[in-house]
Design a protein around this nucleic acid. Structure first.
Lengths: 213, 213
DNA sequence: GTCTATACATCGATAGAC
DNA sequence: GTCTATCGATGTATAGAC
């Protein structure tokens, strides 16, 4: 179960972890090679360059994210539900690819400066467009507030969501689905306690956990 | 007005900008030197090492943040108001020192691995403690919800707040005070429209605006 | 306080043996 | 497919002239 991965996949996985922790610019090809147990020269049998590794890590991640987003908006029944689905989709992809998620959010600004990573730019634009369309539709139909700009709300929820890969380690006690509920609930309902809001209480929302906390 | 800064201050300011944009590890001393118009060797007359520059940039920032946080909690009249004050304090310090803020949030995890930056660790712990104390007090007295862990709420608002330095450029149209109100309002009240909440509506769209919830 | 000049380590990447 | 060996560029940092 430990040697079923191709060397190529091993390199991608190890490199992603290093890029996420230290940053792309501060990670050396020798470190990547060490982490998979080969010498640095051997990496170039599998990849053209260090940038090519970055490209592939982010490309795989963005493909997964876009595919999952398409499902999410298709499933949503209204704006609030679409937000719920997008939150869950983001966190599920982040759970599957935590390191790529971290790289994406840590280095997006820097990568955008380099024409090499144009693919990343266009994918990031598509992600933003998906969110904004949902939020603006919710404002237009009265589901969401109109006194806060959709763009501001998008950026707040996006950053809170993406950064959760830095601290959230999915496990039985606090699974991704529960985090998704908490994020959705805070951003849509707020953290202020409101009396008599039984409709928001968390009874049958998910299969997991009965009362807890 | 352009030469009133000491060379030392120039170096700190330029280095902070580079560290924020490219990452500490990917920024070279030659780039820092170029950006202030000297040769790289000359930097070492002012600083012991590249790490010493990082230390000082972050130290100045964390000192300002802690001082401002002490005022904020002292001013708050209840938990919700303390959150409001902490949000405003964070954004004001971020406005004064946007690059240091970006470095802090971009590289905190990596810097924590190095004993060199122990100062940063302890300051980060103090920041978290301030927030958690406020949030837990609010849960205890019923102001805040008890079905979402204080730690989770803290991390969500912290990340949304800190990351705003990546996109928010304070100006007359959208000043820091307004962003602070928006952040506070989303996190405490939520984004879902609620009927009959005239108290929350934003009549005077831009500067000041009277009602203020 | 800045320069010239350079030491010495490490970087990404390549060539060719095995 | 991995190794040995190494190139040329670039990294941090230092020493001493000016």
């Amino acid at each position: 179960m430990v040697e079923t991965q191709s060397r190529r996949a091993q390199i991608l996985a190890s490199a992603a972890e290093l890029f996420a922790r230290k940053g792309v610019g501060a990670t050396t090809v020798r470190e990547i090679a060490d982490s998979v147990g080969v010498l640095s020269g051997s990496l170039y049998h599998h990849f053209e360059s260090k940038d090519a590794i970055v490209d592939e890590v982010l490309g795989d991640y963005l493909d997964a994210l876009r595919a999952r987003y398409a499902e999410a908006v298709a499933r949503g029944t209204n704006a609030a539900d679409c937000v719920r689905q997008l939150v869950l989709a983001s966190l599920e992809v982040a759970e599957q690819q935590p390191f790529a998620t971290a790289i994406y959010q840590n280095e997006l600004h820097y990568l955008r400066e380099q024409p090499r990573f144009k693919q990343v730019q266009t994918a990031a634009a598509a992600v933003q467009k998906t969110w904004l369309a949902v939020i603006e539709a919710g404002v237009a139909n009265g589901e969401f507030r109109s006194d806060i700009e959709p763009r501001v709300f998008y950026r707040l929820i996006r950053d809170a969501l993406w950064l959760s890969v830095r601290w959230h380690r999915p496990n039985g006690d606090y699974p991704t689905t529960t985090l998704a509920e908490d994020v959705t609930s805070v951003f849509l309902d707020g953290y202020t306690a409101r009396r008599k809001s039984a409709a928001r209480s968390r009874t049958g929302s998910t299969p997991k956990r009965a009362v807890k906390r």
